[in-house]
Design a protein around this nucleic acid. Structure first.
Lengths: 117, 117
DNA sequence: CTATATACATCGCTAATCTAGGTATATAAT
DNA sequence: ATTATATACCTAGATTAGCGATGTATATAG
């Protein structure tokens, strides 16, 4: 996966997962990898700072869960503000996606007819 | 337009335009704005460095055109290497787009049923 | 002569990602 | 016992992309 395309979409991906219910970080990485069929492989250096940013913005909230049989987990919950932000970002994503495809759509039809320099 | 989503997609947008024929920078800004119905408004501090990067990678090539009635223009041409890169990126875009929508798609159906914290 | 549009460019700032490293618990293998 | 692997969190430093600001220059409109 081209890492560049990922930039700017981590927020909506994480918020989307949490809109279905609370999850902890490590679980989110696995979920994203599974759902995207291996396309998204979040690094820890990307994930945790991203979660902290979202929490600082008040879009999610983290709560530690103590465990006996393994390392403690920090479960994140979507706040109501986060739910609103998700709705906005989902709308923006649609706008962005359509804009990209209007631009690259026409160009792609020329594939094979194009002469390089 | 959310500037974050733009990151990583400037390359494919510029290459797409040039796949239809040579263009100069200023023209590309206007073209993108028009085609995206105002969504993409490339700043000069974004565009010119991006073009220089693509040229440094050998994906495009710039040639100055002298003019009598106005400032000179630097026309960019897609190289054959650039054509290949565009094909790859277009494929990647499709993969990426589908992956994002598999993730956010399910969450969006829950809109309105979700309780904030 | 001033403002606007065209047309190129760079500098410094900010923000997001990655690499690499760290801590800690539990289990499986040697 | 010790080593490896998986789980589970974290951060520091480097890199990179986009943006605001600014600069240069030409042509036209008021």
């Amino acid at each position: 996966m081209d890492k560049e395309l990922l930039k700017g979409s981590t927020g909506i991906l994480l918020l989307s997962l949490l809109s279905e219910g609370p999850m902890y970080g490590y679980q989110m990485v696995k979920e994203l990898e599974q759902r995207s069929e291996g396309i998204f492989r979040f690094k820890e250096g990307t994930l945790y700072p991203a979660l902290h940013r979202l929490e600082a913005e008040g879009l999610i909230e983290g709560r530690w869960e103590k465990r006996e049989n393994g390392p403690d987990r920090k479960y994140y919950y979507l706040t109501s503000k986060g739910g609103q932000a998700l709705a906005e970002r989902a709308k923006e994503w649609g706008v962005f996606r359509r804009a990209v495809e209007r631009v690259i759509g026409s160009g792609l039809m020329l594939q094979g007819q194009q002469e390089g320099v």
